[in-house]
Amino acid sequence: MAGNNTFNVGRDGYQITIIDSNAGPVSFSGITSFEAKPAFVKLKSVNVNGRIIHRNVPDGHSGTLELDRQDSSFDDYFANVEANYFAGLPPGAVFITHTINELDGSVSQWQYSDVALAPEDAGTWKGQDKVTERMTFDAGRKIRIA
């Protein structure tokens, strides 16, 4: 049972799973951040009588994953995607599953489909600083699966 004044923290969204139909399950080591944002097209209609009507239409999702580089998984995946493109191969179907530990002890799972991943930053190599890599995604749908 959840206590008073409780709320989710980052580690509650404890698992991100990425499946690529060309590469299979994709494991990125050291994921430190997952951000997801729904997108909506905001429509507005003004009737001749002056009544203003608004409607929001779902328009996919976008987000960012950040990781502290621990191995070559990020570089390997995107180099493979690039090689497939230049070899004339079709892109794989990509899905992201986000698993969350809820405060009441239950588990929720959400799946993003029709995903396109893009590398945004392969990291800066400097002195004793950690190397942070970042990718973005765009998705067509978000569906609750558990």
Rank of each mutant, 00 (worst) to 15 (best):
I100W: 00
G88A: 04
P91N: 09
L103R: 06
N80A: 15
P91I: 00
I96N: 03
Y85Q: 12
F86V: 14
L89H: 13
G105I: 03
N101F: 02
I96G: 06
P90E: 11
A79G: 10
G105V: 01
T99S: 09
Y85S: 08
A83P: 00
P91G: 07
E102A: 12
E102Y: 08
D75T: 13
V94L: 05
A83C: 01
F78Q: 11
N84P: 00
G105S: 03
E82W: 09
E102P: 02
F74W: 12
F95N: 08
N80F: 10
P91S: 12
V107L: 02
A79S: 15
A93Y: 03
Y77N: 14
V81T: 13
H98K: 14
F86L: 11
Y85P: 00
S106Y: 01
N101I: 01
L89E: 15
E102H: 12
S108E: 15
Y85V: 10
S108R: 15
F78T: 10
F95M: 07
P90C: 01
P90K: 07
P90F: 04
H98P: 01
I96T: 02
P90Y: 02
F95K: 15
G105K: 02
Y85G: 07
F86G: 00
A79N: 15
L103G: 12
T99M: 06
T97N: 08
P90R: 02
A87H: 07
D76T: 14
V94M: 05
F74H: 05
N84Y: 00
G92V: 05
L103P: 08
T99L: 03
I96R: 06
G105W: 02
G88P: 11
P90Q: 09
A83N: 13
Y77M: 10
N101C: 01
D104M: 07
D76H: 04
S108Y: 06
A87F: 08
F95Q: 14
F74T: 08
T97K: 13
V107H: 02
F74N: 03
F86M: 10
F74D: 09
V94E: 09
F78A: 05
T99V: 14
G88L: 05
D104Y: 04
A79I: 04
A79P: 04
E102W: 07
I96Y: 03
P91C: 02
L103V: 06
A79W: 08
L89F: 09
I96V: 07
Y77H: 13
V94P: 13
